[in-house]
Design a protein around this nucleic acid. Structure first.
Lengths: 207, 207
DNA sequence: TCCTTGATGTCAGCTACTGACATCACCTTC
DNA sequence: GAAGGTGATGTCAGTAGCTGACATCAAGGA
């Protein structure tokens, strides 16, 4: 556990996850995390901007993946389909670490602090996706709206994937959730006109 | 400035806003806010759970308004229309305090901390709206999706309202943004099938 | 007048986070 | 292979957000 052991970041990340699960997120101090990784508190903060960030480090990679998928989508692909493809492209990342993702999600839903951080990361993904769409010539506000709608789909789909005992693929959840969104937004007339029809209840695919 | 002046909460809120604008959010300490309101730091934390919360206190009222609007919507109203109506119902709240809303928004966009808090408040509104929809018999995942989509619309519409030099009504922005969302989600086939048509670019209403 | 109650103050303390500076392992260069 | 440079780490002191425990004070009722 000498001063120059390799992979300090990884050690910190692992120590943090272990401690969070053993004693809970807020009963774990940064000093303890660092100690378990054989480092000092000060060094922890050189790798992670704050205590929460140790759980959200991966977002940068997701962002790149999403942006590149949108950028490289065939020109004829509609904005919403491009975003959907980008979200689906992230599925393998989670599939490989399903148990980690599940444990992490359990921590997040239990702690408001962490939920805040997750939401701003998702918002960051939405904004990156909107940028990429604008790069394809999509104008505002369609770009932002499409990106935000995509993220809304992702949120719901991800929750269902995490809780899905059958472990269906995340991209399947994304596709069905997107279809649900389309159904929900298509079920009435223009909002500026009076709705002409009684609510058509969306058929929920079994949960 | 005696110990028992009335409206401690209001004084704290006002002192905070003033100081944030004078010297910036993070160069203002809670102690300073309390001092300007003629109180102590400890008392500040009895009214607000944390420093950020002083800017988000109103969310509880918004939540009630949104929920009651959804609950009281005519039975035939579609879920999305009910949510849209609920969002529009909040417009007067902001209209009365347009300048305050603008100043507050400027602070929020400039500080990541505050953006995080705003996002979790919006997520809270979405979840309350989803509850209300379920109370109307809407099943999952349609309820969550409709609520999330509504919040996405609100985010975009609110940004545009804040930046709109013509000061059009917020509810107008909400309606047009909702129409944009419908256009965006309607422009392609089902995501489970291959998109049959080249992207139909959404017509962006002049910005 | 006394007593209860609720709002406020005081104080001590923890923890997240930061700036400044020292130290150490390793690598290059002569 | 000694000297010096470089980047990662440690040390230390300090600030600010936030909390628990307890004291104090104003107001209203018995």
């Amino acid at each position: 556990m000498g001063r120059w052991e390799p992979n300090a970041r990884g050690r910190l990340e692992e120590a943090a996850m272990n401690l969070f699960q053993e004693r809970g997120y807020d009963r774990t101090t940064v000093e303890e995390i660092a100690a378990r990784a054989g480092l000092t508190e000060r060094t922890f903060f050189r790798y992670f901007a704050d205590k929460r960030e140790v759980l959200f480090w991966g977002a940068g990679e997701l962002r790149k993946l999403i942006v590149s998928t949108i950028v490289e989508a065939p020109e004829e692909t509609s904005p919403l389909d491009a975003v959907a493809a980008a979200l689906e492209a992230t599925a393998p990342v989670f599939k490989e670490r399903r148990e980690y993702a599940r444990a992490r999600q359990a921590l997040i839903v239990a702690h408001t602090d962490l939920r805040e951080r997750e939401l701003i990361k998702l918002a960051g993904l939405a904004s990156a996706a909107a940028d990429a769409l604008r790069g394809r010539g999509v104008t505002e506000p369609a770009a932002s709206l499409t990106a935000e709608a995509g993220i809304a789909v992702f949120k719901v789909a991800f929750e269902r994937w995490v809780g899905d005992p059958k472990s269906q693929d995340l991209s399947r959840h994304i596709r069905t959730t997107l279809d649900e969104l389309k159904a929900v937004t298509a079920s009435t007339g223009t909002s500026t006109a009076n709705p002409r029809q009684p609510a058509k209840r969306a058929k929920a695919p079994r949960r």
